[in-house]
Design a protein around this nucleic acid. Sequence first.
DNA 1: TAGTATAGCTGGTATAGACCACTGACGCAA
DNA 2: TTGCGTCAGTGGTCTATACCAGCTATACTA
Lengths: 233, 233
Amino acid sequence: MASPIYIQIHNRLRKTVEDGQWQIGDKIPSERELAVQFGVSRMTLRQAVQTLVEEGLLERRVGAGTYVANRKVQERMSGVTSFTELMEQAGKVPSSRTVSYHITTPSLSESEKLQLTSDEQVLRMERIRFGNDEPICFEVATVPERLIRKFSKEDVTNSLYRVLEDEAGLKVGHAQQTVSAMTASERVSEYLNIKRNDPLLRLRQLSFLDDGTPFEYVRTQYVGNRFEFYLER
Amino acid sequence: MASPIYIQIHNRLRKTVEDGQWQIGDKIPSERELAVQFGVSRMTLRQAVQTLVEEGLLERRVGAGTYVANRKVQERMSGVTSFTELMEQAGKVPSSRTVSYHITTPSLSESEKLQLTSDEQVLRMERIRFGNDEPICFEVATVPERLIRKFSKEDVTNSLYRVLEDEAGLKVGHAQQTVSAMTASERVSEYLNIKRNDPLLRLRQLSFLDDGTPFEYVRTQYVGNRFEFYLER
DNA sequence: TAGTATAGCTGGTATAGACCACTGACGCAA
DNA sequence: TTGCGTCAGTGGTCTATACCAGCTATACTA
C-alpha cells in the first residue's frame, strides 16, 4: 500500500466507471459524500477527482455536480503515448490482434526512414488495436531486425520500448509525427469494421533513440469517429 | 480584481519569469518562503505553482526545490500555429476568401464552448484559405460579439489576436485543439475543389485569454492530401 | 397556471497546521 | 583525500474547517 491515498481513490473511482456502475452522463456522488465514504478529507477526495478530470474521465459542473464525461478517446500529444496507456486513460480496456509478423525486406520508404544499409532486414508487424473490443486503429510497425534479434515475439509485441530500455540498455529519445487524413481501403475497412472510403486519421511516427538513430517506424490508421487527438498549447 | 488569489499569484510569478528576473534553470524560492512573501497559505501558493508546472514553465524536484523549466514543452507544441505561418514554413503564398461574416445567434456547441450567457450574440465567419491559390482548408470561426463590438471587419478578419491585445488590452493565453478525420460535405467539397466524401482533417480549436475566458472557437477542415500536421516530441 | 423567490445543494477557493520521503550540503572519520 | 552519515530544507500528502458563487428543485406568489 505504497501509493498515496488520492491515487488509490483515483484508481477505485476509475474502476467504478470502467465496470459500468457509473455510466456516461451519470452524476456521481458529491465530493463531500465521497469523502465520507472513503473516510478521507474533502481536499484529498478532490485531489483524486482532479486527476480523473484531467484525464477526461470526469467532468465538474459548478453548483451542479460531477459527471462521467462523454468523450472520444483522446490522445494527449504532450504526454507519453503508448496505446495501452491511452486506452486506460480513456477508461477502456485495451487489446490487440496481430495480423502479421514477419522478418522481411524493407520497402523503400522504410529503408529510407530507418536509415538502413542495403542488406538489412526488418521486422514488420501489423496489428489491429481495440478499446473495449471495438476496433480503434490498424497499425503497421517496422523495426530494424538487428535491434530485436535476441528478443522473443512476446517481448516485441507487448512492449518494445521497455525491452529496448531494460534489456538492451538503449534509451528512447524523441519522435517525429505527421497527422493527415485518408479514406479506408477495402482491406483496412474490414479489419476496422467500417465501410470502404470511411474517413481515417493517419498518423506516421518515426521514433529515435537517445543518440539520434531511428529505431521504429509506425503507420497507424485511426477510425475517424472513434478517435481524436488532443493538443494543448 | 475578481480572479482568485492563486490565479493572481500565477500571473505575477509568470511575469517574474518573463521579465527575466528568474532565468531558465534558476531555483526559485521555496513554497513556504513564497507563501510568506505573498501573504497566503502554502496550499494556495502551491496551487499557483501547480498551474505553472502544468503549463511547463516551472519544474518541481522533490527535496530539492522548484526550478524555471527549459521550455521544450511549449516549443514542440508551437508546431501547430497560425495558418499564415504554416504556409510560410511550407514555402507557399497564403491567401483567403471570406465566404460569410454575420452577427448571429450561437449554436448550442458554440454557446457552450465560449461560455456565453443565454442572450449573447456571436460573430461567425467562414473562410476558405489558400496556399499558392490552391484551396487548403475551410474554416468557421466564432467570437463573442461583445469582444469585437468596437472593431472593424478588416481588423477582425486580418488579425483578431493583435487587435485584442493591442486595442482591447486583452492577453491571449492557451488553446485547446482536437484533431480528427471526416469526409467532405457537398458544400465544403465545392469550396475546396474536391469530391464529395473525400477525406478531410478536422481541427477544432478553442482559444483562451490569459484569465481563462474562452474567446474564439475555430473549426477547420483541411484537404487530406494537401495538408498534414507535423509534431515532434 | 405561469412566473418568481428562495433554500439547500454543488464545486471552487482559502486557511493553518502536520507528517512524510527525499535531496544535497556539510562535517566527521578512515 | 575520500567516503559516509547526519540533518536542515524541500516538495508531496493529508486533515479539518470555512466561506463563496453557481445551480436547481421546490414552494410560494400573482
